[in-house]
């Protein structure tokens, strides 16, 4: 006798059935899934070309089930520019961390945004260099201790954490710039919606879209996964406010 089975939860087609190398409690898995769900929901997987960064998600091409290129550190938006200009029918996205995007790749991200490249940039901000062992990032919070800011980040010495979403929203060309967070199920649902909006706008040929996702790094922060999520919600969200900084007029909540 067969038991009726209803599938209520499954892996998105845009993700491969493969274990990741990420640390326990790392939100990269959540972010990967949200990107994959957006590609699935919009039917874009077979047109998608992702660009992996240098950093913890350097191996993202092993986990996504779509075409991928792997960039030099910080250069993902330049690769994405080349791909999209060469193949305008593809859906091109970069997936970058804070060291990659906001430090070594600052020129590439600002100019790709300023040219209005019709790509989607997914920016994972966990305020630390995870892959290299927990060094200070351009988004490391004031006072935050890392292996290269052992006394806590001192703004007199090294300046203040960079707010990328706000910075990019001062440019004319970008059509969608938002910051979301991955700290609670409710926030994850909002992040999912933001990624869906960004990919849809790209598919509609609207222009440059940017989704910053506040994340955590239990290993680099020296916390349990649960502590890290709480710390992120309290500290990260206090300095990096969530919201949609730029949105087309026609969108719900879009500014006139």
């Amino acid at each position: 006798m067969s038991v009726p089975v209803e599938v209520i939860f499954k892996r998105p087609e845009a993700l491969r059935d493969r274990p990741t190398h990420y640390c326990p409690g790392c939100p990269h898995g959540i972010a990967h899934r949200l990107v994959a769900e957006a590609l699935d929901d919009l039917g874009l997987r077979e047109r998608a070309v992702g660009v992996a960064p240098v950093g913890c998600s350097v191996l993202a091409y092993n986990y996504f089930n779509c075409d991928f290129q792997e960039a030099a550190h910080g250069r993902a938006p330049a690769l994405a520019t080349g791909i999209k200009r060469g193949r305008p029918d593809t859906i091109v996205f970069t997936y970058q961390g804070d060291g990659d995007l906001a430090s070594i790749g600052m020129a590439e991200i600002i100019h790709a945004a300023n040219r209005g490249e019709k790509i989607t940039v997914v920016f994972i901000n966990n305020a630390i260099y995870g892959m290299t062992g927990g060094q200070m990032a351009p988004t490391t919070l004031v006072g935050q201790k890392t292996t290269t800011s052992p006394y806590g980040r001192d703004p007199e010495q090294i300046g203040w954490p960079i707010r990328m979403a706000e910075l990019l929203s001062t440019l004319v060309a970008p059509v969608y710039v938002t910051r979301q967070a991955l700290y609670t199920p409710q926030l994850v649902r909002k992040a999912r919606k933001a990624l869906h909006t960004a990919f849809r706008l790209q598919a509609e040929g609207k222009g440059f879209t940017f989704v910053e996702l506040l994340s955590s790094c239990p290993t680099g922060w020296g916390m349990t996964p649960v502590e890290a999520l709480e710390w992120g919600k309290e500290k990260m969200m206090a300095y990096f406010p969530l919201g949609e900084f730029k949105k087309p007029e026609a969108e719900e909540g879009g500014k006139k």
Partner: peptide, 15 residues
């Protein structure tokens, strides 16, 4: 630096 990486992307896309 950006330009040569645009070449990477574009050539990688088969162009």
């Amino acid at each position: 630096v950006a330009s040569i990486n645009m070449l990477f992307g574009c050539a990688g896309a088969g162009v």
